[in-house]
Amino acid sequence: MTILDIDQPVAPPPRRKGRRGRATALAGTDRLTLGLMLGIPTLLVLALIWGPALASVALSFTEWDGVGGLSDIRWVGLQNYADIFTTYPRFWPAVQHNLIWLAFLIVLPTAFGLFLAVLLDRKLRFGRLYQSVLYMPVVLSLALTGFIWQLMYNPDQGLINSLIGHAHTDQINWLGNPDLNLYAVLVAAGWKHTGYVMLLYLAGLKAVDPSLKEAAQLDGANGWQTFWQVTFPVLRPINVIVLVITVIEGLRAFDIVYALNRGRNGLELVSVLITDNIIGESSRIGWGSALAVILLVISLGFIVTYLVQVFRKEERS
């Protein structure tokens, strides 16, 4: 049935996995190799990500316009945080939008991406074509994506209003109406995200041994049951990846709104607020850093909980 079946080379004695790593003492050169393999990337990440991140945490307790040296930085303690939570009118809307964004991405594009992956996971004429078309938005640039959706949503000239007959009378202001634009942009975000999720699941589904499904069908399971009882559990590693990616995308969402209207007027997102305060002609480094730290803490909350769970499960199995 398959060209290469894993059962034939080594029939694995169960639990052998647990012994990995310490099976044999590593030779000296191997130790060195391992050290280098791990060491160089780790050093780079520590130096360029974590070091600066810690520096930013420190900066979040200061007031600084980004000009001059250490002596120009004024320590303000928790003032930035207090002000952000109480007087910054864009903050809470931004948090809310991020959460909506996250919930949307987890529910719709993810489910639809999985659905499409399942549909495409078979020998199918035009299968590659379908995949390519669905995946294509993922590789398009920020500029092009923003621009494309501007063309789509433009109230006077856009394709959508023209198609539904609202271009001349009773215009729908997709991007200008603050009650509507978040959802309009989410469609664009979903347009990108679905293909991404689909691809990941497609990769995962290819790794599902078909004999498992056959066995389930022999047992009389229908397609729905086979999927949920056999395929879906096997997709667990992919599920983790998809979930993590979706959380990242949801929390860090930035480019589409930035391209459309700089994240204003109903499209506020935390990452946009950070950008506004940090990049610019006279920036509020402390303020922006504090916003970034808040986002960081939320992200870390999600990711650490999840990673810890995943690893616990793995240890148990």
């Binding site: 791990l38 990337p41 780790t42 990440v45 520590l46 360029l48 990500i49 974590w50 070091g51 600066p52 991140a53 520096a55 930013s56 900066l59 980004g66 993590v244 990242i248 929390l251 860090r252 935390v270 990452s271 950070i274 950008t275 940090i278 990049i279 480094i285 922006g288 850093s289 970034a292 730290v293 986002l295 960081l296 992200s299 870390l300 990711i303 650490v304 990673l307 810890v308 690893f311």
Partner: peptide, 22 residues
Amino acid sequence: LALLMLFTAGNLLPQQVIIVPI
């Protein structure tokens, strides 16, 4: 685990956060 977290969480940082120090 710590190492994986170091890498994964590093990717989660909002990139804007490290602009100034970088």
